[in-house]
């Protein structure tokens, strides 16, 4: 049985994941032995590519675990990327930029929560409103002629970064990439071992049961959406302040939606979603590398649509097998 409320997996699935993990690991080790430089480059790149997806998926699953379907992540990310960049330009501080990016993501979360939880509007339409609003605001207020003022730099951990393979990949990384790894495990821990997690999952599965036990389902949903906004905001800040260094119109490029596929693929668990994000990242990185080495001469339009194709395939195969939280998408109303 596949249950979303517990990090449970069928034993068959478990063996499958275990074996494919070993296979993947041996491929990595083998390619490291053949060509260490390229391997490190690919792994570093997949970690970077996976970061906004993993963060977006965290936002998605914190909302969905409490029963709210958030398709506005794309817009939250876009707003965060925009404000993070602007504040960085005005103040010259990357840290302030990241913080205001996060704040923008959470603010968008508050708007989304007001619509979905307080006004009980259709959640899909609310997500669409957030996306439209983000596109409109970032387009309308888009300042022309601003120059980039740098981006977050990679940090090398002493000693650890000298290790072979894992050193350069895991310990010579930029701050948001690194914090994402920590956040994934933190959220996993919080979700399955704390009061907040238990209540969140209860509200997502059966809000009335939670309500009768004195847990206000709508309040739980409200703050979970805002907490989710933190992660979407961080993802946006990553895009404009760490990955690219400037804001571009529509720079999220559908990542907010891909993140939802990543979340489903990972069965609504943070570690699972992270694994799925890494796979996505790996696919992208390998593709870029092949392109770069001119091994493949596929037009860039076709390689460019790879993530979108993978998303569709993932959704088509896994949505039936992975069970979403029980009350997903249904506004909770007391009798």
């Amino acid at each position: 049985m596949i249950t979303a409320s517990k990090a449970k997996t069928d034993s068959k699935d478990r063996i499958f994941f275990f074996l494919s993990g070993i296979l993947l690991l041996s491929i990595i080790l083998y390619s490291y032995w053949i060509s260490p430089l390229v391997t490190v480059a690919i792994l570093t790149s997949s970690l970077r590519q996976s970061t906004p997806l993993a963060l977006g998926a965290l936002c998605g699953l914190i909302c969905e675990r409490s029963g709210v379907m958030n398709i506005g992540i794309e817009g939250q990310m876009l707003l965060a990327a925009f404000f993070g960049f602007l504040v960085n330009v005005w103040t010259g501080s990357l840290l302030l930029g990241v913080i205001s990016g996060i704040a923008a993501g959470m603010l968008a979360g508050i708007i989304f929560a007001l619509m979905t939880v307080s006004m009980k509007m259709d959640q899909i339409i609310c997500g669409t409103i957030v996306n439209l609003l983000a596109a409109g605001l970032t387009g309308y207020f888009y300042p022309t002629g601003i120059n980039a003022t740098g981006k977050l730099k990679a940090y090398s951990f002493p000693f650890l970064s000298e290790l072979p393979l894992v050193g350069p990949v895991l310990f010579r990384v930029s701050p948001i990439v690194f914090s994402t790894i920590i956040l994934v495990f933190l959220v996993h821990f919080l979700l399955f071992f704390t009061q907040w997690g238990l209540r969140t999952r209860a509200v997502g599965e059966y809000p009335r049961a939670a309500d009768t036990m004195g847990i206000n389902a709508n309040i739980v949903r409200f703050y979970n959406i805002i907490i989710g906004g933190f992660f979407a905001g961080l993802a946006g800040a990553f895009l404009s302040l760490e990955a690219v260094g400037v804001f571009e119109r529509g720079m999220t490029n559908g990542r907010g939606f891909i993140a939802l596929a990543v979340m489903i693929f990972g069965k609504w668990t943070p570690i699972g979603a992270w694994g799925a994000a890494l796979l996505f990242g790996l696919a992208l990185a390998v593709q870029t590398q092949l392109q770069f080495d001119q091994v493949l001469s596929i037009p860039h339009q076709f390689t460019g649509m790879l993530p979108y194709l993978i998303t569709i395939i993932v959704l088509a195969i896994f949505i039936k097998r992975n069970r979403p939280p029980g009350s997903l998408g249904v506004p909770y109303e007391k009798k």
Partner: peptide
């Protein structure tokens, strides 16, 4: 068909298909 036979949510597949359409026509 994706929605009806696999259950993939039409909002996500729809947006993905939009990007794919842009890429293909661009090519």
């Amino acid at each position: 068909a994706l929605k009806a036979y696999s259950g993939a949510h039409e909002v996500i597949t729809g947006i993905m298909c939009n990007y794919i359409a842009i890429n293909i026509t661009d090519y």
